[in-house]
Design a protein around this nucleic acid. Structure first.
Lengths: 119, 119
DNA sequence: CCATCATATGCCGATATCGGCATGCGTCAA
DNA sequence: TTGACGCATGCCGATATCGGCATATGATGG
């Protein structure tokens, strides 16, 4: 009687919000300062509704804020939500900094074994 | 005549791969060392097929590697793919470290305005 | 060879996602 | 007031996603 769940809502999680390439590009652009929707859409080659929808997601996870400026609505970056992601990935830093000579060799072995196995 | 696209394939992008909470938990667990599938499933409270599927995604984006160990198959962490994510978010570091006094005040204003507007 | 354990895969249902399009809504200027 | 502009929203279609379940595949040991 329980309905199966699908994917976690993109709107509830920063990790999901930045999983979208276009949303990442929006964030990159906003580092240069506030922008109205239309300008973002134009610079990123997407439609205005498309931009608005992505901005809505980013707003709901708190990565952007919006401000009315006359007829326009300016979107600005609020990068604080990216900090947890940075820290989470940072928790793996020692695993890519440590001596991976053995790992590298291992990976090579795997690739070779696969090639041999498939031919 | 072109079929519309939906979401980018989760299998092609590390950002998408780590958008899934359970997959993130798998990666965290694997920091402690290699593990067979069943053990992972058990420790994370998911079914074996569920674990296998998530591991498949992680493998396809290169975040884990697998190694046959007799009857079992051991999965191990390969965190190098997380480095780009760490660096990407790091590109926003100055935006959460810089003086955000004005931003904080601004955000407070927004919240207050919303509350007043809605009550 | 056969049974068994470990894992992968296939199918299903429910839902989320994304792009495109049309349209609603609010704001400004004449 | 009436357009015109800027933006948000709603609907649609195609597809991806995730969990659950059954089952296939694979290796091991007797």
């Amino acid at each position: 009687m329980m309905a199966p769940m699908a994917r976690a809502a993109t709107t509830s999680d920063v990790f999901n919000a930045i999983a979208e390439p276009q949303r990442r590009e929006i964030l990159l652009l906003l580092r240069a300062g506030e922008r109205p929707v239309t300008e973002l859409a134009q610079e990123l080659g997407m439609t205005q509704p498309g931009a608005s929808k992505h901005l809505r997601v980013l707003r709901e996870v708190g990565l952007v804020r919006d401000r009315k400026a006359g007829k326009q609505r300016l979107y600005g970056l609020d990068a604080r939500g990216l900090r947890p992601v940075h820290e989470w990935t940072g928790g793996f830093e020692r695993f890519w900094n440590e001596s991976f000579d053995r790992l590298d060799a291992y990976v090579q072995d795997i690739k070779q074994a696969r090639q041999e196995g498939r031919n």
